[in-house]
Amino acid sequence: MNTSTTASKSSDIPGFVDRIVRPLTHLFNPLILRIAGGRWFPMFSLLHHRGHKSGRIYATPVTGFPRGGFFWLGLAFGQNSGWARNVLAAGDAYLRYRGSDYHLVEATVVATAEVADELPRVVRLGAAAFSMPRGIGPHLASALAGGGMNLVLTGRSGSELEAVAADQRKHGARVLTVVADLLDDDARTLLIGAAQREFGGVDVLVNNAGGDPLRQFEEMSIEENESIIKLNLFAPIALSHLVLPGMLERGRGHIVNISAMAGRVGFPYTEAYAAAKDGLIGFSRVLRTDYRARGVSSSVLILGAIAGAGQGQRTMDQMRMPKSSFMAPVGLVAKALLKAIDKDKAEIVVQPGPGRMLRAVMDFYPGLGPWMNNQMGVNRTLREIQDFRKSQTPAGR
């Protein structure tokens, strides 16, 4: 199949980063070569090109996307990278993408800004800010860094943030870490200000910070319940309010909020948490309605129980509880995030089975969730987890 190809030029990599990243590409390329071009790995295509001096045929993994009759190939190191020089000199190349082969001709280099509307959102949006050091956060960071995005990571543990950042930098991502307590007004303002200074703006905001102590409502003070709502609902609203003016000025942006099924299923001991997560769904819907026509969209991921990451998984590991078939693997959350941005999805439910339909049924039959929890032993399990956490809490707290 003959098709033209246009290579979109990504932002230049600073010299010192370039000197570090280029050797790493030689280290990881042999591994990526094994999967590039395969049906199940759309992020990596395999480009066969002829050396403009040697005449030899080379195979190089690249990031490419078909759009509008063209293949867009990202130039992570600019148009002077070896494969780009070869393709431009020869005038053609062969590309394997998702198991199919394409003959590429008439290669041209253009700036990303000139073709932004043709590129997937995950490629054309340049900097993502995350409230996330723990749980599923590192998996979300890896997903977007794999799409060529720069990252701003925030959380309360500097060591955990740096561990995540170091892992992403190995793969060529530019990463800024900001230690911050998202319950603090000034800390949120400083966070977004740092992201704007480093990358010129925030194009994607992922509100992933959250959590719940899983304690009986009557045993917690009203201040403790207020903190749960602030972390899970008010902080995402406040961060969205801070990044929105810049997004509107640039005419593009995407805010992704991480919610949960807690409010629909009626999990015990989650009163304030469930209220906050349901409120986050409503906020995401209205924000999307109000600003999508102006280039800024919003999505919400509604998560069930997640296996392989997060506070729930850590607690189950500590209690040596077996993995449940009703838990979704953490990789599905990362895939849902990319889909929400690239396909501009309003809501994605992440849980085994027909999650969206089950959520709709629970809206119609409010008593179904609690009944299912009791029948499947969820209530008993959560009581055991609550008792375990209580036993791990020092006296007086």
Results as ranks from 00 to 15, higher is better:
V243Y: 00
P352C: 11
Y94P: 01
R288Q: 10
W371L: 15
G51T: 00
N374T: 10
S10L: 14
T6Q: 13
D101W: 13
D186W: 10
N379H: 06
G211W: 13
R67G: 12
N29I: 01
V296F: 00
F234T: 07
R156Q: 09
E118Q: 13
A395Y: 04
Q311R: 08
Y365D: 10
L239K: 08
G78L: 06
M149G: 04
F28R: 14
P213G: 10
T189K: 15
Y269G: 04
K230T: 05
A274T: 07
M327Q: 14
A274D: 02
A143Q: 09
P322Q: 11
P352L: 14
P66M: 12
A334T: 00
Q313R: 12
A395M: 03
S11I: 08
M132G: 12
V178D: 09
G353H: 13
R169I: 09
V175D: 02
L75C: 07
S259M: 01
W83S: 00
M327I: 01
W371K: 15
N207G: 04
I222Y: 02
D212V: 09
G15S: 14
R188P: 07
W371V: 11
P213E: 14
R188G: 04
L332N: 14
M376E: 06
E218D: 13
L73V: 10
A7F: 15
L24M: 15
S10C: 11
P120L: 07
L176N: 03
S297K: 08
A113F: 01
Q392I: 06
G246P: 00
I222T: 04
S81C: 10
S259E: 01
L280H: 06
L358F: 11
H49M: 05
V110D: 05
A262V: 03
I255G: 04
A143H: 05
G91Y: 01
E162F: 08
I348M: 00
A305Q: 04
G211N: 12
A107K: 01
V122G: 06
G211T: 08
M376Y: 14
P268I: 10
R397N: 03
W72Q: 03
F130E: 09
L46V: 06
Q318L: 05
A305E: 02
S157R: 14
V87C: 06
T112G: 07
V164S: 07
A276S: 12
A127Q: 09
A293W: 04
E226F: 04
P268S: 07
P23H: 10
W40K: 13
G210H: 05
A129W: 05
S391I: 07
G377E: 03
T3R: 12
H103Y: 02
M247K: 05
G91T: 02
P14N: 09
T108S: 05
G282D: 05
L382D: 00
P14Q: 02
I136N: 03
S227H: 10
Y273K: 11
S299N: 08
W72R: 07
G295L: 12
D278S: 13
Y273A: 01
K323H: 06
Y94I: 09
R67N: 14
V164E: 01
Q318A: 08
R96L: 01
G15D: 15
G135V: 09
G99L: 04
N232M: 03
G64S: 15
L73Q: 00
G68Q: 13
I348W: 06
A360H: 00
Y58K: 10
